[in-house]
């Protein structure tokens, strides 16, 4: 039954391996993408992975709790929220590791003060989208496959592998309408370019996320007893 030997140590080892692999391939072997591209790439990959892994996991959170919800009348919002909190704590460690790696090469600046705010906004966005997919998937089971596909698609249009200024000016505004792309860009602004992030954009993302969260949360509360029937086999 033991799933792995190092358990929580993997929370540190995983990102260390990721950073090392990217460093070796892009900096030492390929020497591609110009100076410091490796850092843009790492910020992109790490910020993305928090989003992608949490929303994917949350989409099946109620399906995984099928047995439990057949037996007790429990608040169904619990299940996506557990996924969101567990993966966010894990991601906080990863972000700290990334920060150390960046500080080592770029140094640190007052702009880093915005980092907790960025983390909070991203948390709100992830929580609201996670609870949305968790609430929807039991109604339309095929949706979790569609969500997995959409997340993969979203990864390619969120600027994980390229920066916003490599996009032509006419399309950049549209590109930054994507909240994930926008957040990744803001992380790069704060951590690498040492500038103040786009506070308007961040506030809009935060406000919309909170509204979405409240709406879905209300829906799940009202339809709490529909879920055992939907997931019953």
């Amino acid at each position: 039954m033991q799933r792995n030997y190092l358990s929580y140590v993997w929370w540190f080892l995983e990102p260390v391996f990721l950073i090392t692999a990217f460093y070796l391939v892009f900096e030492v072997m390929l020497r591609r993408g110009g100076d410091g591209f490796i850092y843009d790439l790492l910020v992109g990959v790490i910020v993305w992975s928090w989003f992608g892994s949490t929303v994917t996991q949350a989409s099946t959170s109620i399906l995984r709790a099928t047995n439990l919800i057949q037996l007790i009348d429990v608040d169904k919002r619990l299940f996506p929220l557990v996924d969101v909190f567990v993966l966010s704590i894990k991601q906080l460690f990863v972000l700290i590791l990334l920060s150390l790696f960046v500080v080592f090469s770029h140094g640190i600046d007052w702009s880093w003060m915005w980092l907790p705010y960025l983390f909070l906004v991203q948390f709100l966005l992830i929580a609201s989208l996670s609870i949305l997919v968790a609430a929807a998937v039991p109604f339309i089971p095929d949706l979790h496959i569609i969500i997995a596909l959409m997340i993969r698609f979203l990864m390619f249009c969120s600027g994980v592998f390229f920066t916003a200024d490599s996009i032509s000016a006419e399309h950049r505004e549209l590109f930054l309408m994507n909240p994930v792309a926008n957040l990744i860009e803001q992380y790069r602004v704060v951590m690498l370019r040492m500038e103040t992030p786009d506070l308007t954009a961040l506030s809009i993302i935060a406000a919309l996320s909170i509204l979405l969260f409240i709406g879905v949360s209300q829906f799940m509360h009202q339809h709490s007893k529909a879920y055992p029937r939907l997931t019953m086999q």
């Binding site: 919800i69 057949q70 037996l71 007790i72 009348d73 007893k225 055992p228 029937r229």
Partner: peptide, 9 residues
């Protein structure tokens, strides 16, 4: 039993 336990309405 599910009804009584409040699992379903």
């Amino acid at each position: 039993l599910r009804l009584l336990a409040g699992v379903i309405d």
